[in-house]
């Protein structure tokens, strides 16, 4: 228990201490690098904005991520079960993933002018579905044939094989991908919020810090984003424990 909570907590304190020391020793002014001691002032000054915009960023990230899960799993299933579809879709998927999403932001913004929530959710979704689709397809296509045969020889349908074996067996890979996707989705949301001038979300708060030369605010936003990222990540870890905890080997 001590190790689980005290050790990461001390690590965060050490990190903040080193950061503070670096700024002090180098005598960097705020516009080069704000120090952790500047942050409480920024948070207390704009706390209501942090709450409102933090919530906007959070819910749009989560909705984007949920879309990515639904779409990624569906795509992964198609590619996992059909060799032809895998051969057909892989190059498209890799190509799509290779496009920097920053270049997609203006396209999406023009496509759905003014629909800021939709645009942001869309970018979060587009940036995060790839790892999910790939991991599910690999999980399904590498299922040992004996697993299938055990159920098929009893006359089980494809659907039964999927629910009883293929799906649970793929869960560890799925959660591995979901951990990657969570942080990616945050990047997507903020990309849209910073680049597209709609004034919503933590990204917009960051942008206003930039235009007003409020450097501590910019750093405060970064820390707030990191905090949200950690929270969502550990939500996924908790879900993984519940649904795929069996994959974790007991240390012997």
């Amino acid at each position: 228990m001590v190790r689980k909570f005290a050790v990461p907590f001390i690590a965060v304190l050490v990190f903040l201490g080193v950061w503070e020391a670096l700024v002090w020793i180098n005598e960097w002014p705020n516009f080069v690098m704000a120090s952790p001691s500047d942050l409480p002032a920024a948070y207390s000054k704009y706390w209501n904005l942090f709450l409102i915009m933090g919530w906007q960023t959070l819910w749009r990230t989560v909705v984007g991520l949920l879309l990515a899960v639904v779409f990624g799993v569906a795509l992964g299933m198609i590619m996992g079960f059909s060799r032809t579809m895998r051969d057909a879709l892989y190059p498209l998927l890799v190509g799509f993933n290779a496009i920097p999403k920053a270049t997609v932001v203006p396209i999406v913004a023009l496509l759905f002018v003014g629909a800021h929530d939709l645009n942001t959710v869309l970018i979060a979704f587009m940036i995060s579905f790839f790892p999910i689709a790939v991991s599910v397809s690999i999980g399904l296509s590498t299922l040992e044939p004996e697993y299938r045969d055990i159920l098929r020889s009893l006359g089980a349908s494809q659907a039964t094989i999927f629910w009883k074996i293929a799906l649970p067996k793929t869960l560890p890979e799925f959660f591995g991908a979901l951990k990657v996707a969570v942080t990616l989705a945050f990047i997507g949301t903020n990309l849209m919020e910073i680049v597209s001038p709609h004034g919503r979300g933590l990204g917009a708060l960051f942008d206003s810090g930039k235009t007003n030369a409020d450097y501590p605010l910019m750093f405060a936003v970064l820390i707030a984003l990191a905090f949200l990222g950690i929270v969502l990540y550990y939500v996924v870890v908790a879900l993984e424990k519940v649904f795929a905890g069996w994959a974790e080997r007991q240390p012997t």
Partner: peptide, 11 residues
Amino acid sequence: MAFQNPVLLEW
């Protein structure tokens, strides 16, 4: 059926 690989469901 039983195979060389016991193919038990780990979960």
